[in-house]
């Protein structure tokens, strides 16, 4: 029953979010602000995660390859496809759920409990749309770029880890692997997942914040819930989308 209640309220909120914006210029200004806050501010963390993940995948694959008949260049191939298929889209989205999700929920939650949302409503502003739409659009727009960035950095990190830091394989072999059996559709799949995940992170976190009741303590709770629910949903949709798109 609780689930149905939340689903109903979530859908009604989204209907309000996607109502026709009143002043497009102001919405666009908010969109640019969110682009900066949700996108550019996340570049650092995406960079760090990706470089380490790429390096570790490469070294681990190298260490686990015991059969001498398997060519080493497959390590590069493995790193590339792991980054594209799973790590850059799903793991980066999970990390962003933690960073961006808690940020959105606490911002909107604080606005709710300090009556800033009431203040917007009283002026006749559609608060749901004004606060949430720019965030959803900004994340859906910018996250694919973050993922592409993550793929490249991950592959670079793989080279640093496997060819520079250790000598798991030679740079030449790594590059051969990177070029081996490339499936362009994997990129489409990865970016499609990212867009869905971006929508989940922003809308679910905004939902948690928007319906906060109480005070500072509840804002903290909403922010935790935002991270937990959006992470679980990301994992569920990862499974569903993989079945639909790749199986």
């Amino acid at each position: 029953m609780k689930l149905l209640f939340h689903l109903g309220r979530y859908s009604r909120l989204l209907a309000k979010v996607f109502a026709k914006p009143e002043k497009k210029r102001i919405y666009f200004r908010q969109f640019l602000i969110e682009l900066d806050r949700l996108g550019l501010d996340s570049v650092g963390i995406v960079f760090i995660i990706s470089i380490f993940m790429g390096a570790v995948i490469t070294i681990q694959t190298g260490l686990n390859l015991e059969n001498p008949f398997i060519p080493l260049y497959l390590i590069g191939y493995g790193t590339r496809d792991s980054m594209i298929l799973e790590f850059s889209s799903t793991i980066v989205s999970l990390i962003l759920a933690g960073k961006v999700g808690s940020n959105i929920a606490s911002e909107i939650g604080t606005m709710r409990v300090t009556e800033q949302i009431d203040a917007l409503e009283i002026m006749g502003v559609n608060s749901a749309s004004y606060l949430i739409l720019p965030k959803i659009l900004a994340a859906v727009f910018i996250n694919p770029f973050l993922v592409i960035l993550s793929i490249f950095i991950g592959i670079w990190g793989g080279w640093l880890g496997g060819c520079v830091l250790t000598d798991v394989l030679t740079t030449d072999a790594y590059i051969v692997g990177l070029r081996y059996a490339f499936v362009p559709f994997y990129i489409t799949y990865s970016l499609f997942k990212t867009v869905v995940f971006a929508f989940i992170i922003t809308s679910v976190s905004a939902y948690m914040g928007y319906f906060t009741e109480g005070g500072a303590l509840e804002v903290g709770r909403s922010s935790t819930k935002a991270v937990v629910y959006s992470s679980v949903l990301i994992l569920m949709f990862n499974l569903i989308l993989t079945q639909l798109l790749l199986a």
Partner: peptide, 24 residues
């Protein structure tokens, strides 16, 4: 309307707060 805690927009300056209704 003046709310109990003021309900000023935290992320906006004093001037932006007062101009907000005019903007909208």
């Amino acid at each position: 309307m003046v709310f109990q805690g003021g309900a000023l927009f935290d992320s906006a300056t004093v001037e932006e707060n007062v101009m907000y209704p005019l903007d909208m």
